[in-house]
Design a protein around this nucleic acid. Structure first.
Lengths: 251, 251
DNA sequence: TCTATTATTGTCAAATATACAAAATTTTAT
DNA sequence: ATAAAATTTTGTATATTTGACAATAATAGA
């Protein structure tokens, strides 16, 4: 810009920032979409629930820092999960200590073990996202906003990618996958139509002529399926987020 | 994590980072989608083309910093453009001077004036994105990657939001809007179907019984349209990115 | 006036989605 | 053992949406 005589800012004084990563880890437990929260053991916000996260190390990539935080809190390595950058948050007052910009990530894990407190956390839990979205759980910093944005991104990605499979173990039935969508979107989906969409998406493949029983409760045994290769974008959406009768919320 | 006796990292030593914003400003000029680039006047990468950007000031919001950079380089205020955060880039070696994390934004402007050099730029230009995507223009830092990601996000948002209208002046014809899509996706769209989709999207409204002529070349005069209110998500996609005969590239 | 050009509306067939029925194959209850 | 219920899977009829393209409208320019 046309810098006049008096420049209000010296571009050579790089203002010092701290940079952190925070990760919204989603999983499904007892038919409920949950987010991993830790209870902070240090000021600021000591004793308050927050997303797992921490400072990016001097020689560490942002993605690596997020993967490290993910593994520290869950024991799950990057290969066993889906991890994607969301966006950054950096209002000047978001951390009372100093100027901190956080790079937020979201992750999806299958069958997350009940987390143990560790590091600077005095507690940890898998909290139903309805409690966060409903405002019943107040999080530290701007983490309520981050969770809201992460949920929106995750729910939207379910429509046109195969990321939903990351909520399941490597081998899963189509009904198990459908229950992922039903928990994440809080709505019922038609089993027949969902089945057809999964097959047509081209993102999944049936495991040989196997059958699965164990999943109790009677009914015809289901075939096992797996992600066909990596996590490519499927040609067709797995499911559209539209209403299907039932007592659940509308989208 | 189960911190053992020897912790490999002291969490109280906040590693100092510099934080910048970089903005990929898109516009359309002579039927061509272009991105605003500046020629750096300072080391590193002096004389190399780069995205406009700069350091976030100590008391400045990230969005404000991006809006400031946008206005400094284009003279366009946030109200006249669309500005959205993309994501952050922070590999340790991306800036040879020091550890810099950049928060990338993308913006859409209508009728951008040919930019003047200013500040730490010795040149500026609106470069066709094909030259950047084709690898004919090598940008400073990781800005080639940022432009690629910004393009992908922008093109994808054209499908299900009304952001394309921001390439046009406040009042525009449906054909002008169609040419935005055609330039951005590098493909022809069927005029009739596009017209129907715009009307059905619910994101635009026709300006009273006005007509427009001036847009030379003969033909029936077109109605003027405008974004109906802010930039909400339309109920229906404006256009699907599928082929329509012609000599342009396939999607 | 006649032709070319662009805008707008309309039409029809193909593709897709939705609702729902039916068949297959198991567990659980009687 | 038999019946009933549950669950997966395939199929089908209808409605909706899309894509291709025709038809009409309204102008500029020759």
């Amino acid at each position: 810009m046309p810098d006049t005589v008096q420049t209000p800012y010296d571009p050579h004084a790089y203002p010092p920032f701290a940079v952190t990563v925070d990760v919204a880890v989603f999983t499904i437990r007892s038919e409920t979409l949950r987010v991993l929260l830790i209870e902070r053991g240090e000021e600021p916000y000591k004793g308050v629930w927050a997303l797992p996260g921490g400072f990016v190390r001097p020689d560490e990539d942002l993605d690596s820092a997020a993967a490290r935080e993910l593994e520290e809190e869950t024991g799950v390595t990057k290969r066993g999960a889906y991890l994607e950058q969301l966006q950054s948050y950096g209002t000047p007052e978001r951390d009372p200590r100093m100027r901190v910009v956080t790079v937020a990530y979201w992750a999806v894990c299958a069958n997350l073990a009940l987390p143990k407190a560790g590091g600077d956390a005095i507690g940890a839990d898998l909290v139903p996202v309805t409690e966060v979205e409903g405002g019943y759980v107040r999080l530290a910093f701007d983490h309520n906003e981050i969770v809201r944005d992460a949920l929106e991104r995750m729910r939207s990605k379910l429509e046109y990618t195969a990321v939903g499979a990351k909520f399941c173990p490597p081998e899963f039935t189509i009904s198990e996958l459908r229950r992922v969508y039903e928990a994440a979107w809080n709505m019922k989906l038609d089993p027949g139509n969902f089945h057809r969409n999964v097959r047509a998406s081209g993102s999944f493949e049936r495991l040989d002529p196997e059958r699965l029983v164990e999943r109790s409760k009677g009914g015809r045994p289901a075939s096992l399926w797996a992600l066909s290769e990596g996590l490519r974008s499927p040609r067709l959406p797995i499911a559209k987020r539209r209403r299907f009768d039932d007592d659940m919320d509308e989208p």
